[in-house]
């Protein structure tokens, strides 16, 4: 993949019998941090799963670096998957393996590095997320926040060009959540990766997002896109209300 720009056109997502979201159109630039926000159950995770090929789009297209992804043949798809790093909500570490083995598995699978080199890379990735020395721990032996970090270490094992996060701060205390946000920012700054984050955590949205898209579950489509601080001032009333914890900052009446 030459560039990691993401283009989504006329995308409909959902399950066999019904569409969760229709008519999604957006672009994510190289190195941008792009947040997908919206109320619980509006289809954020569904969008993310569609973008990483875990489920099929109902219609429309998703392209990475100008190359179509969702209609590409399987082998092209799996080639593109190599440039993705995904952090799942609970970390999704492979529970039968230690953290070290979790990170080493993709390296063993997709590179021809010697065991020694793999070990060094694994230690580096663990160090990058602040878990140096935890390599021999099993996922069940560490806390939820640490699991997310370890999940991030595995996600960056193959030096991905696009990082996807599903609710990175869900279930974390405010301090850990803040640290994870900072980690995401630093990760982007130092690697230049494009980052797509699904979240409804306001603090995170204002900290990390370059731009954000709002998925509205009443109209079942996107109703706003832009920098969150600007969306708060202008744009759609629903979005302002969402971004201001249920109170429209521009309205005089309080409609909580």
């Amino acid at each position: 993949m030459s560039s990691q720009k993401i283009t989504v056109e006329n995308l409909s997502i959902g399950y066999e019998d019904y569409a969760v979201m229709n008519n999604l159109n957006f672009e994510v630039e190289n190195g941008e941090i792009f947040v997908v926000m919206g109320a619980s159950g509006c289809g954020k995770s569904t969008l993310l799963r569609t973008m990483i090929g875990l489920q099929d789009a109902l219609s429309g297209s998703i392209s990475y670096g100008g190359k179509n992804f969702n209609n590409a043949p399987e082998d092209e798809k799996s080639e593109m998957l190599r440039y993705f790093g995904v952090l799942y909500q609970g970390g999704a570490l492979w529970s039968a393996m230690t953290l070290e083995e979790n990170i080493a598995l993709p390296l063993r699978r997709f590179t021809k590095l010697s065991e020694n080199d793999i070990k060094e890379l694994v230690n580096l990735k663990l160090a990058l997320v602040g878990l140096r020395g935890f390599g021999s721990f099993y996922p069940s032996e560490i806390s939820g926040g640490m699991r997310k970090r370890a999940g991030l270490a595995r996600a960056i094992a193959l030096d991905p060009k696009i990082l996807f996060f599903d609710e990175p701060s869900a279930g974390l205390d405010p301090v850990s959540s803040r640290r994870l946000d900072e980690l995401i920012l630093q990760m982007r700054d130092s690697t230049g990766a494009t980052v797509v984050i699904v979240t409804h955590e306001l603090a995170s949205i204002f900290t990390v997002a370059d731009r954000a898209i709002y998925l509205d579950n009443k109209t079942r489509t996107q109703t706003a896109i832009g920098n969150p601080k600007e969306l708060l001032k202008s744009g759609n009333a629903d979005v302002r209300t969402f971004l201001n914890r249920g109170v429209d900052p521009l309205s005089t009446e309080n409609k909580l």
Binding site: G90, L124, G133, S140, S143
Partner: peptide
């Protein structure tokens, strides 16, 4: 960017022995 990655890797790491005994009971999310 190399310096920035190095700084990231050498920033405060959690202490290794901190939570060996802590076990999360919620295996299934």
């Amino acid at each position: 960017s190399a310096v920035s990655l190095l700084n990231l890797a050498t920033a405060v790491n959690l202490k290794t022995n901190e939570s060996r005994n802590y076990r999360n009971k919620n295996i299934f999310h």
